[in-house]
Design a protein around this nucleic acid. Structure first.
Lengths: 214, 214
DNA sequence: TTAAAAATACCTAACTATAGGTATAAAAAA
DNA sequence: TTTTTTATACCTATAGTTAGGTATTTTTAA
């Protein structure tokens, strides 16, 4: 009773990672057909004509934002299971991935066993994380799954000015606002990013590339 | 005329990268014996008892600083050729690696062909870079062209902790220093970078790529 | 082996950010 | 059109940073 193989896509700009994943998947090669893509957009093209059951999606691709890509994938093919794959250990990125429909998140130091376990779990419809990713997710945090940092225009603007070392008062003067208003925005940013001061806020913003592209 | 195989070591905490590299090396398996290590220290132990002709050394290992590790390797076994391997595109890291005796640097998006070419070149005694790494080496950074604040080890350490949102008191506790000392270091940093607060300091540090590696 | 640089530690006072609220009007979404 | 989100503004306290220093010891480089 031979059923069709599961189509497993790998999207990663590093050939060695692709090869590594393929090798780690070999023990179960009987069940999977692996296809791989260096570019995020290539996979989107593929997906519009073909089917993929599960995709291991690198978050930091040169030609696309992994988080946006995940959203796009789920829009084109809602049944495709997405597992985020990255070196990035930011909890907020993981949360954003889940919000955009991902079924889990693996850090690139995943062990061979974990990799296969996570793929099984994801194919069974469960949400899954690699060991280290799980630890990060377990970390206590105010930000719940529903309220992930999506910042408003005004907040982005204030973030930018904070990054220039400006004080609340200076920002207020520049934007013709009350310093108290600026303070409120800053406090909201701290809450959204789940950080406790401006320094940490800016580093989080840098990591999420919120400061470079405006 | 069968000569002994070249011992090629891979030091990387990601099993998938190790597998990927091994797969990419397969075409020339006749010439190489590949050994791999998840931990930097494991390789150091190995090296004290065995020989390795070339090592592909991941720069960002959890248990060791790649740059320091490179220095250590060259001390134990000066003949071992070290090729840095990383996702990190910081020119300063590459330069530090070379200073510590590395024969080149590969970014993890290296293509299969490049990988083999670079290994050949390194074994021939030449200094070698992957395509993208070469590009980065070719353009001197802003940092090197101009006004770079030269900061001390201690200052770098404190900068890193400030980037984690830690307060003077917290940093002092972590480093077993007086808060007043930490404060002095922070003040010196502000002066060196010619900025007026921690937020601006961190952004300047990010721009000069002083925070990504330690 | 000196001189310079780095790391250490202290002081006072002023300034700024952070925590934990509340509240209202104007835009956007549902 | 109602509901939700965004942007606005305020309050009280406390915690933490910044601006001016000075000064000793320990390392590193010349």
């Amino acid at each position: 009773m031979q059923q069709d193989k599961i189509v497993l896509a790998i999207v990663d700009d590093h050939p060695m990672v692709i090869e590594g994943l393929k090798t780690l998947l070999k023990p179960e090669a009987a069940f999977y057909t692996a296809v791989s893509f260096i570019k995020g957009r290539e996979f989107i093209s593929f997906l519009s004509q073909n089917e993929a059951h599960l995709v291991l999606l690198d978050i930091s691709l040169p030609d696309a934002n992994g988080i946006e890509l995940c959203k796009e994938i789920k829009k084109i093919s809602p049944k495709t299971i997405v597992l985020g794959l990255s070196n990035q250990v930011e909890r907020s990125i993981m949360l954003q991935m889940l919000q955009n429909g991902a079924s889990g998140y693996l850090l690139k130091n995943v062990s061979p066993d974990e990799l296969l376990t996570c793929i099984h779990e994801a194919l069974d419809g469960r949400v899954t994380f690699s060991k280290e990713a799980k630890e990060i997710m377990a970390r206590p945090s105010k930000a719940e799954l529903g309220e992930v940092a999506s910042i408003t225009k005004r907040e982005k603007q204030i973030l930018q000015l904070l990054a220039q070392g400006k004080t609340t008062a200076a920002i207020a003067a520049e934007l013709f606002l009350s310093p108290l208003t600026v303070d409120t925005h800053r406090k909201n940013l701290l809450q959204k990013f789940d950080v406790k001061n401006t320094a940490e806020l800016l580093m989080a913003a840098v990591q999420q590339k919120l400061l470079s592209n405006m």
